[in-house]
């Protein structure tokens, strides 16, 4: 729960609600950007940013190289898999 995983912001889905799609190892999921945007860095400017995603929220910007390293390590450990599965949990049932 406290680990988090890096993802790349690929699409803004709602400027008003600060929502965007991130791509985490090929899996796309909507996340909230409220914690990483401000006047200097508005929602619209986030496309292409790498962020650390925690329970559906982008919590911190990270540089691309760092993101790649962390993802590689997490997938070696199988931890990325767990996180990705959690991201795709279907709670509708």
């Amino acid at each position: 729960m406290c680990l988090g995983i890096p993802g790349k912001i690929v699409e803004i889905t709602s400027v008003e609600n600060k929502l965007a799609k991130v791509d985490v190892s090929g899996i796309k999921r909507e996340v909230n950007l409220a914690c990483i945007v401000n006047d200097e860095h508005p929602v619209e400017s986030c496309i292409g940013d790498w962020v650390l995603v925690h329970v559906g929220f982008a919590m911190s910007r990270i540089d691309e190289e760092e993101a790649a390293k962390t993802l590689a390590l997490l997938s070696e450990l199988g931890e990325a898999q767990q996180e990705l599965e959690a991201m795709q949990l279907d709670s509708s049932a």
């Binding site: 329970v55 559906g56 949990l89 709670s91």
Partner: peptide
């Protein structure tokens, strides 16, 4: 089980006749 509290909120939107409760736990991270 949900991945994010936002998923719980989504359940509330799609199930207006139900009460959706999210179990919030964790330190300052969550």
């Amino acid at each position: 089980m949900v991945y994010s509290p936002l998923d719980a909120l989504q359940l509330a939107r799609t199930n207006p006749a139900k009460e959706v409760i999210f179990f919030g736990l964790g330190f300052e991270t969550t």
